[in-house]
Deep mutational scan, measured.
Amino acid sequence: DAPDEFRDPLMDTLMTDPVRLPSGTIMDRSIILRHLLNSPTDPFNRQTLTESMLEPVPELKEQIQAWMR
């Protein structure tokens, strides 16, 4: 099983494109984008959230890719 820090906190699946929300939570980009289609909010604190506020986490993405090899 993947380490917890590699798993999306909402869907508990392996992240492939991790992004940091303004709240500091790291999620998979595809999952948070799907959530934003229904509700333009951070799913953990209900603060306003837009796609432009998502910050890529390239170092975590590299760690996940290395773990998958």
Rank of each mutant, 00 (worst) to 15 (best):
F6N: 01
R29P: 03
T41P: 02
M15Q: 00
P9N: 05
L37R: 14
L60N: 00
E62D: 11
V57L: 12
T25N: 11
R20T: 03
M27Y: 05
P43G: 02
P43W: 04
E59H: 12
E62C: 12
A2K: 05
I64E: 01
T25I: 15
Q63C: 10
R69G: 11
P40L: 11
A66T: 11
V57Q: 09
P43Y: 04
M27P: 01
L33K: 07
L54C: 05
E59D: 12
P56E: 12
L60E: 00
M27S: 03
D42T: 04
I26R: 04
P40Q: 14
S39N: 11
L37P: 00
P40G: 11
D12W: 15
D8A: 02
T50F: 11
V19F: 03
I26P: 00
H35N: 04
M15D: 00
P58W: 10
F6P: 09
G24F: 04
S52K: 10
R20V: 06
E59F: 10
Q65L: 15
V19C: 07
S23E: 01
P3E: 04
S23V: 02
A2G: 08
M15K: 01
L49V: 07
D1Q: 14
D17K: 02
V19R: 00
S23K: 01
N45T: 15
T16C: 14
E62P: 01
P18T: 01
W67M: 04
P58N: 10
P58L: 10
R20G: 01
M27A: 05
D17H: 06
G24D: 03
E5P: 09
D8E: 03
D8N: 04
S30N: 11
M15P: 00
D8K: 06
S23R: 02
D42P: 02
P9C: 08
L21C: 07
I64H: 00
T48I: 12
F6L: 06
P18N: 01
M53Q: 11
T48A: 14
D1P: 12
M53E: 09
M68E: 08
G24S: 04
L54Q: 01
D1G: 13
L36V: 05
V19E: 00
P18W: 06
E55W: 07
L36Q: 00
R46C: 15
E59G: 11
L21H: 00
P58V: 10
P43E: 02
T16K: 12
S30L: 12
A2M: 15
P40A: 14
I31T: 14
N38M: 13
F6T: 02
E5N: 13
R7H: 07
M27L: 07
A2E: 07
A2R: 05
A66K: 13
P43F: 03
T16H: 10
E62V: 10
L33I: 12
A2Q: 06
H35A: 06
I26E: 02
D17I: 05
G24L: 04
L21E: 00
S30A: 14
S30W: 13
L33E: 09
R29E: 04
M11W: 09
H35E: 07
L37C: 11
F6Q: 01
Q63M: 13
T41N: 08
T41Q: 08
T25E: 09
D12T: 09
R20D: 00
N38W: 12
L10M: 10
D28I: 07
D4V: 15
R20M: 09
M53H: 05
L37M: 14
T13H: 07
L60K: 00
E59S: 11
Q65F: 13
T13C: 15
L36M: 09
R20I: 07
R69C: 12
M27V: 08
E51L: 11
A66N: 13
F44S: 03
L21Y: 01
Q65H: 13
P3C: 09
P18V: 04
N45F: 07
D17N: 08
M11P: 01
D12L: 15
S52N: 12
T13P: 01
P43A: 04
T41H: 09
V19Y: 06
D42G: 00
N45E: 07
A66Q: 13
P18Q: 04
Q47S: 15
R7M: 11
G24Q: 04
I26W: 03
M53N: 06
G24N: 05
F6W: 09
